[in-house]
Structures are given as structure tokens and as C-alpha cells.
Computed example of a mutant assay.
Amino acid sequence: MSDRQELLSGMAVTVFKLNGQFLHVAEGLARPVGLTAAHWQVLGAVTRTPLPVAGIAREMGITRQAVQRIADLLAESGMVEYLPNPAHRRAKLVTATVQGREAVRRIGPAHAAYADRLCEALGDDRAAAVHRLLRELSDTLERLAAEEDGR
């Protein structure tokens, strides 16, 4: 295996592990308010701006079917509602209700405390640099995928 293949594999394995670690943290933060990490993820995507299911899926990097299932569960529990979408008649917009925004707000203190612990452990400058590098990696992967799709 070439050095570049080793780098790609190492990045992928590390990101897979990080994903699991972040999901574990998110589960711990969301559970006390009666949510799962997946519920919080979808709610968080629509707390400020309504989005169609496909838009949430693209933003979060999960399947449209998974988002639809979670959005339907959240709608049944009164956390989100579906609104007409002026841009697309069949793809309704998902938006957080007052109850959904309140649930996300209740996660806030524990979320802030964990963010403080993490940033203190890494240092604020290094935490910001990690975030920039992860965004850059994501943007690059997105660009490469778009180039492949455009072949």
C-alpha cells in the first residue's frame, strides 16, 4: 500500500472512530431531555431554518430515508411540524416547534459544559484549528465527489 493510501485509510478510520465518539457524547447530552442523538441532530438542523428532508440529509451526511423516519417520529411527538414548501409542492419543509426548540434549549447547559471541557483539554486555538481542518477535509471530499459525479 502506498503512503497516500495509508494516509487515506488512516483518516477514514480516525473519522469513523470520531463519529462513534461524537455520537456517544451526543447520546449522553440528549438522553436527559428524552431525545436520542439522531433526534437532536435532525432537530438542530431545523431549529433556525425550515428545511426539506433531503436538505437535512445533505447537511448531516445521512440518508434521506433515515431523516424521514426521524422527522416523522419527531412530528408524532410534537417536536417538529411539516410546512408547505413554496419551492417544491411535494417536498414539505420540516421546522422545529416550540416544544422542539425547548428540548434543544434544555440540552444547552450540558452541551456548553462539555464544550468547555473539550476546549480546555485541547486549548481554544487548537480546537479551532481542528474544526477548520475537519471542515476543509469535508469540503474537499465533497468537491472530489462532485467532480466524479460530473464525469
Rank of each mutant, 00 (worst) to 15 (best):
A71E: 00
T95P: 03
H111K: 04
R48P: 03
A145C: 08
A12Q: 12
V25R: 05
L51S: 05
G44C: 03
Y114C: 14
K92Q: 15
V104K: 01
V53F: 02
V46G: 00
G108A: 08
V25Q: 01
M11V: 15
L122R: 03
C119M: 09
V94Q: 04
L43Y: 06
G150N: 08
V46W: 00
H39T: 04
G55V: 03
N19C: 13
A96G: 07
V13P: 06
N19E: 13
D139E: 14
V42K: 01
E148F: 13
V25I: 15
T95V: 12
L93Y: 01
L134P: 03
T95L: 03
L51M: 15
V42E: 00
R58A: 12
Y114F: 14
R135K: 08
T63Q: 06
L144E: 14
A54H: 10
A127K: 06
T140Q: 14
V94A: 04
T97N: 03
R69E: 10
Q41E: 10
Q21K: 06
L35A: 03
Q21M: 15
L18Q: 11
L29C: 07
G100H: 02
P109D: 03
Y82V: 05
R69F: 02
A54F: 04
L93E: 00
L73N: 09
R132M: 10
R64L: 01
P32Q: 05
R117W: 07
Q68A: 15
G123T: 07
L133W: 08
V130C: 14
L93Q: 00
D116C: 03
I56P: 00
A87M: 12
H111Q: 11
P86W: 05
A127R: 04
A115C: 12
L133C: 04
E148A: 15
R135N: 12
L137Y: 09
V80M: 08
V25L: 07
V80A: 04
L23I: 13
T36H: 04
A113W: 00
G44F: 00
R64F: 03
A54K: 10
A146V: 12
G61I: 02
R31T: 04
G20V: 12
P32S: 06
A115N: 11
L133R: 11
V15R: 13
T36Q: 07
E59H: 09
V25T: 08
R58Q: 05
E147V: 07
K92A: 10
E142M: 07
H39C: 11
A91D: 14
A129N: 06
L29R: 00
E6M: 13
R132K: 07
T49F: 05
L73E: 12
L141Q: 13
H131E: 14
V130M: 09
G78F: 03
F22R: 15
R90K: 09
R105N: 06
G108T: 09
A26W: 00
V33A: 02
R135V: 15
E142T: 15
